[in-house]
Every structure is written in C-alpha cells, then in structure tokens.
Amino acid sequence: MTRSIARETNITLTNLEGVPGKEIVEHYGLVQGSTIRAKHVGKDILAGFKNIVGGELKAYTELLQESRQEAVNRMLMQAEQLGANAVVNVRFATSSVAPGAAELFAYGTAVKVQ
C-alpha cells in the first residue's frame, strides 16, 4: 500500500479535527463514499471450511480491503467535485447488509486548508 489508503491525489485525509500545521479556511459539508461487495461462491465454500480449522480468512480480508479502498476513492471523488483539498474527521463503518454482502462506508468533512 502507498502512503495513504487512497489513490494518488492531492487531497489530504485525516481523522483529526483539522490538518496539523494548516488552517481551515472554507468547508463544504459532509462527503461520503460507500460500496457493497460480495465474494463469489467458491471463496464462500473455502471460507466455510476455514470455519472448521480457524485462522485468517484471507479471501475476506482482501475483499474488505479492496472495498474500503473503493469507498475512500468515492468519497474523494465527491470532495474533488466540491473543490476541497482535504477531508477531515474521516470515519469508517462496516456493516452486513445481506447474507454474503458487506457494506463499506467512509465519510468525512470536505474542507479547504491553507
């Protein structure tokens, strides 16, 4: 993974209330990114077997990591549209919305810092 979990971008992501060393001059409100993914049946069956021996479910770890990346990217897309150069107070939420599908949600406040 690169220095941040998002793609190469000029937007700073923090989960602090502001960006250290900079001042917030303008803010644009909440931005959110979410994605819902399912893993296919083959990996499901293998995970079922893992339930017997225990240990890390690599397939699901990968799935959720990819999803988180995508959720953050979508949030960044919204921030770009608003003309922000930082998103502060970023929070994540994972939830299961249906058997086999997990929702990854990222949200924060889009701001302009100087």
């Binding site: 979410s34 819902i36 993914r37 399912a38 296919h40 990996k43 919305v97 249906a98 086999g100 599908a101």
Partner: peptide, 27 residues
Amino acid sequence: SAALRNLVGGRVTVYETLIDRGRREAM
C-alpha cells in the same frame, strides 16, 4: 439479482442504490 450476485462475486450494484437512498434519506 443480489442472490445471483452472491454466487458470482463483485460489486452488488442493486444494494448500492438502496443504501445510498437510505443514507441520504436518514440524513
């Protein structure tokens, strides 16, 4: 559609609209 997607894998697009709607409505 979602049940079929569960077999094939990938992005569950049908739930995206559901969750998006729900979230924006709640907000």
